[in-house]
């Protein structure tokens, strides 16, 4: 009885990481599953309340999710997930008890696009890469479908884009969802990101154009850091009359006029 109590106590405090793969019920495997938004929003609420962290990704009709948390909570959650009728053919890929630390400690549930790279997911992949060959062949096949970087590596093997091209592409993709998603975005941010989006400029040119260091530019693309950085830079440029806003698309705008007047001047400038 005492041994059982010890096991129970250990389960409650021990950290576990469990990863699974499943198939979406969506017929069209080339599109984004219609149920995805609901799954993520509901999961964020649950995970926040129960100390679960991890990420979810999908591609080609498959889901992959990594869950971290108290062992008992993770196991109970996985049972619930496996019985969810929004996916099927659920299979555990890796399940590890007694992990020393979380990889995704800041992520209640990151919806991660397989076309992007990020340090947490890279660390996760590196951690489990050498266990890939020992997986069941069907699971290996599914993981290959999910993690293939088809958006970036679309050319034939041996004819991959150079690192700079990949970096540019990732850079633009990273910029879009996390930065534009903030309500009431600062116009300079729109300026910077539109430049990236349009392929108008490379990150290297951008750092020069907007007087940002590479580190600052990366910081700019990190969620929630955008406005504070841009406002800081804006304040600095006002002080010494130089900086990013002097050279950007909206560089000619005066800060003394209303936002609407500034827009008008942009239009007039572009139609002279």
């Amino acid at each position: 009885m005492q041994a059982l109590a010890c096991i129970g106590a250990k389960m409650a405090t021990e950290l576990k990481r469990l990863s699974y793969v499943s198939r979406s019920v969506a017929d069209d495997t080339s599109s984004v599953p219609a149920e995805l938004t609901a799954i993520v929003i509901q999961s964020l609420r649950f995970n926040h309340a129960h100390g679960i962290t991890g990420f979810l990704t999908w591609r080609n009709g498959y889901y992959f999710q990594a869950l971290e948390g108290a062992a008992q909570t993770v196991e109970t959650l996985y049972e619930k997930i496996a019985n969810d009728n929004r996916h099927y053919q659920t299979a555990v890929v890796w399940s590890e008890n007694g992990i020393q630390e979380r990889i995704f400690s800041g992520w209640r549930l990151k919806l991660w696009s397989a076309s992007l790279t990020c340090s947490e997911v890279n660390r996760y992949i590196q951690l489990y890469a050498d266990r890939f060959d020992s997986l069941d062949e069907e699971i290996q096949r599914r993981l290959s479908k999910i993690f293939q970087l088809d958006l970036i590596f679309s050319s034939e093997p041996g004819d991959l884009p150079d690192r700079h091209a990949i970096f540019n592409y990732e850079f633009r993709l990273q910029a879009l969802p996390s930065v534009f998603g903030l309500t009431g975005q600062h116009p300079y941010c729109i300026d910077v990101l539109t430049s990236l989006l349009a392929g108008w400029t490379s990150p290297a040119q951008l750092t020069a154009q907007f007087n940002l260091s590479p580190d600052e530019l990366h910081e700019l693309l990190s969620r929630n850091e955008v406005n504070s950085l841009l406002l800081k830079r804006n304040a600095e440029s006002n002080q010494d009359n130089r900086g990013m806003c002097d050279k950007g698309t909206f560089g000619e705008l005066s800060h003394n006029r209303s936002f609407y007047d500034r827009l008008r001047s942009v239009f007039m400038g572009s139609h002279k």
């Binding site: 993520v40 919806l111 998603g181 969620r223």
Partner: peptide, 14 residues
């Protein structure tokens, strides 16, 4: 913020 970012990510993927 997390929910909104995920929502935007879904539409970005579309």
């Amino acid at each position: 913020d997390d929910s909104l970012e995920s929502f935007c990510t879904v539409f970005q993927e579309i």
